[in-house]
Design a protein around this nucleic acid. Structure first.
Length: 798
DNA sequence: TTTTGTAAAGTTTTT
DNA sequence: CTTTACAAAA
């Protein structure tokens, strides 16, 4: 062990760590696997390990490469390492797989004949491209849909199989596979022609780059002597290959001449040290190609690797951990691992079964207010769900109940048509070869250039062997009418002008990116066209465009030396979890997938129903159920103090109501851990659709355990709950609806009697806030106290 | 070419 | 229920 010659690890980096954590910080060797259960302090271990390598002078900051899955996780790690080391953190690469690869690819672009400003296509772009190819091949009639083809292509890329590789192994007698092959070929050809990469390419092309240019690979291997990978259980084969490329030894013949690091006896660069952290119980990205074997076979892949198990949890109460352990214990074929905490049992898990999704959402809203009233900040509360479609009911009720919330992910700002249009202008400037972007903007705003003209331009470009963009410049030769000619030339001129204005060689210096963007918008009249329609939706779109200009301005302010390509890279790689703003006083809403890696004081896990969690789509996938269970496990383990599990026994899909069964996963939690506010039996035995105000089911006719719609309901739930005659008071016969009303002008004051569509009659207790944000606190006769946003509450004054 | 209308299809999770 | 696709009309 050569490390004895280095300085010792400073005590403050290991003090306060438990023995396995400490071992993980101190271990020195080529390969280290840290199996880190949820909440076991893995980020702490990783950051301390990095800091230790620097403090002992075993590594320069520039020799560290730390890889995470989200920018958010990368930013957090950077901040925490910075906290330990100060400025030193600047020289480290702490980034996601994707941004690290983009950085490498942009830097080496010329080596493989790409412009440094190549375009990154998002999933929508890829889909549009595949759609066009599928249509041209009439593949759909043979059962190959665009999404099917896209899935196949993505899976192939994740396995590092290019079109030729696929051609070699494809079943020649299977016409559908032959079609997929042809689509893959054309798709890849199109990407290349546009000088674009899709998301998967970012990883795979970096691997190809390293394999095709061993001398380039050697530069990176020489540089990165310590590679650390977070969430290793979610790596796919391509990412695994990338790690291998970065960490294996470099034979002497490829070692660069000016290498100053210590070489092995045979003149080669020794392998870099690799640390991976993961938890196979939290592997939830198999659908994206994540291969759990990367972690389960790590010791086999890296002989001599050390494995350290972190089981002590510093996040949740024992009750929450007991539930999590019980659930995940139903997955067979896993390395035995059991989370425990030194803190107490904590509160019981709260269960609630609503009649409808709105009913469930109302429970969430009410509980959030209770938590907030007792001192929990809104930003310490999160609501999780399996599918994005579930947000609608939640949002409706949260708005109505005056709960401030933020949607994390979902339909993102950058996916809006108008923002994509503006982005396409910038992409066209950055990468003139990007025909897809040009096609997008050629008639936005409306210039009278329809599909026919676009085809004419495209044909002209093909005939003369020039790019689409160059064809635009030669508008006069296209053989189209004079009016169109003028429009096309104008567009070409606007783009050329924009391109020239940010040229670093420009005599007066390049113009700011935001300035260039403003000029484009002004010259094209994009915003003016939206404002002119008088359609309120278009006004909103115009505002989104203005919002994007602000993003660009902010970028210019934050990155004085940044260029257009940097802005576009940042925009292309923003992920859902990235824009979580911890400072805002708002509840966070997100899917279970986005929740991974995060933690909250109080968690609401909604829609815990059969067909939803586990999702029906998972039923016929191999290992699907186990992955759904892990997803549920991830959700449970995000909670520090309070966990709520809720469901709705009926849910509307495409406007049609359908009944839902409680999830089988609920049965896997010991009954004693859950206190049901309203159990599935309660709600299913409740007479439904009775008019509000009837005495309903509140009396003694309700018998627990009597209504058993399926054996799923037996045992665990409801039966333990003591009968509570008061419950009739806080429940309501009608289900909560999504009804809203424009009440902007309604004046309310203390003592007013009001009538609410869902909650019945009540007395106004207080009115808070002003204008459209006025909130009424009402004591309802039947259902107790609620907070209501007056502007949208279905409320009238009596 | 664009607008307008009607019909059909679609929802798992995401870097 | 929503979004998207395609056809016919302006």
């Amino acid at each position: 062990m050569t490390y004895l010659s280095y300085d010792p690890i400073p005590a403050d980096l290991v003090d306060g760590l438990n023995p396995p954590q400490r071992a993980a910080v101190e271990y020195r060797g080529d390969a280290l696997l840290i199996i880190a259960g949820a909440g076991s302090g893995k980020t702490r271990v990783l950051t301390h390990r990095i800091a230790g390598l620097i403090a002992t002078r075993e590594a320069w900051p520039s020799q560290i490469l730390a890889i995470t899955f989200t920018n958010k996780a990368a930013a957090e790690m950077r901040e925490r390492v910075g906290h330990l080391l100060g400025e030193t953190v600047q020289g480290m690469w702490i980034s996601t797989f994707h941004s690290a690869c983009v950085r490498i690819l942009r830097r080496e672009a010329e080596k493989f004949g790409y412009p440094q400003g190549f375009t990154i296509y998002d999933s929508a772009d890829s889909k549009a491209l595949v759609k066009r190819i599928v249509k041209a091949l009439e593949a759909e009639s043979l059962g190959v849909t665009p999404s099917h083809a896209l899935n196949r292509i993505s899976a192939l890329k994740n396995e590092l199989i290019d079109p030729d590789g696929f051609a070699r192994k494809v079943d020649a007698s299977n016409p559908r596979d032959q079609l997929v092959l042809e689509i893959y070929r054309q798709y890849q050809r199109e990407l290349e022609r546009n000088r674009a990469f899709d998301f998967d390419d970012l990883i795979t092309q970096t691997v190809w780059l390293f394999r095709a240019f061993p001398d380039i690979a050697a530069l990176y291997r020489r540089r990165f002597r310590h590679v650390l990978v977070d969430e290793y259980q979610d790596t796919n084969h391509a990412q695994y290959a990338l790690i291998r490329e970065l960490t294996h030894a470099t034979p002497a013949q490829h070692v660069p001449a000016d290498t100053r690091i210590e070489l092995a006896a045979d003149g080669s660069i020794p392998p870099a040290s690799l640390t991976v952290v993961g938890d196979s119980d939290q592997s939830i990205y198999a659908f994206r190609g994540a291969d759990i074997r990367n972690i389960t076979e790590f010791e086999h892949d890296f002989p001599g690797a050390e494995t350290i198990l972190l089981e002590q949890n510093y996040r949740s109460t024992q009750n929450i951990l007991d539930a999590a352990n019980a659930v995940i214990g139903n997955n067979f074929d896993r390395r035995e691992k059991s989370l425990w905490t030194a803190e107490g049992a904590g509160k019981q898990i709260v269960g609630f079964a609503g009649f409808s999704a709105h009913d469930e959402a109302q429970f969430v809203a009410d509980e959030i207010h209770k938590l907030h009233d007792s001192g929990t900040n809104f930003n310490d509360i999160a609501v999780f769900y399996r599918t994005n479609a579930q947000t609608r009911a939640l949002e409706e009720i949260l708005i109505r109940s005056a709960v401030p919330y933020r949607l994390i992910g979902g339909t993102k700002f950058y996916e809006r048509a108008e923002v994509k249009d503006i982005l396409a202008y910038l992409l066209s400037v950055a990468n003139p070869n990007d025909e897809l972007s040009l096609r997008r903007i050629i008639n936005a705003p409306k210039r009278g250039i329809g599909p026919a003209t676009v085809t004419a331009i495209s044909n002209f470009a093909n005939e003369h062997d020039i790019t689409f963009r160059e064809a635009l410049r030669r508008a006069d030769d296209l053989g189209v009418g004079p009016k169109l000619r003028g429009k096309i030339a104008e567009l070409a001129q606007i783009l050329d002008h924009a391109e020239a204005s940010i040229d670093p060689q420009r005599p007066t210096g390049p113009v700011l990116v935001s300035k260039m963007l403003e000029t484009i918008i002004e010259q094209t009249g994009y915003i003016d066209a939206l404002r002119a329609t008088g359609n309120p939706q278009d006004d909103a779109r115009a505002e989104n465009v203005e919002e994007f200009i602000n993003v660009a301005k902010e970028f210019d302010k934050q990155h004085p030396d940044g260029n257009l390509v940097d802005l576009l890279t940042e925009v292309a790689l923003v992920a859902a979890a990235d824009d979580i703003d911890d400072e805002s006083g708002a509840v966070s809403l997100m899917t279970l997938h986005t929740a991974k890696g995060l933690e909250y004081e109080a968690v609401f896990l909604t829609g815990v129903e059969e067909e939803l969690l586990p999702h029906r789509m998972s039923a016929d996938e191999p290992g699907g159920l186990a992955e759904e269970r892990r997803l549920f496990y991830v959700g449970i383990t995000r909670a520090r103090q309070v966990l709520h599990l809720s469901l709705a026994v009926s849910r509307t899909q495409y406007g049609e109501a359908s009944t839902a069964m409680p999830s089988r996963f609920l049965d896997e939690i010991p009954a004693s851990l859950i206190a049901w506010r309203q159990s599935p039996q309660d709600v299913m035995s409740r007479p439904t659709l009775r008019p509000t105000g009837s005495s309903g089911w509140g009396g003694g006719e309700r018998r627990f355990g009597e209504v058993r719609t399926s054996n799923v309901l037996e045992g665990a739930r409801g039966l333990k709950e003591p009968f509570n005659p008061r419950r009739g008071k806080r429940s309501f016969d009608n289900t909560v609806t999504g009804a809203v009303k424009d009440n902007a002008d309604l004046e309310l004051a203390h003592g007013d009697r009001v009538k609410h569509t869902d909650f019945g009659d009540g007395t106004v207790r207080a009115v808070l806030g002003t204008g459209s944000k006025r909130v009424a606190e009402v004591d309802f006769d039947e259902v107790g106290r609620k907070k209501l946003l007056i502007k949208v509450a279905p409320l009238e004054k009596l």
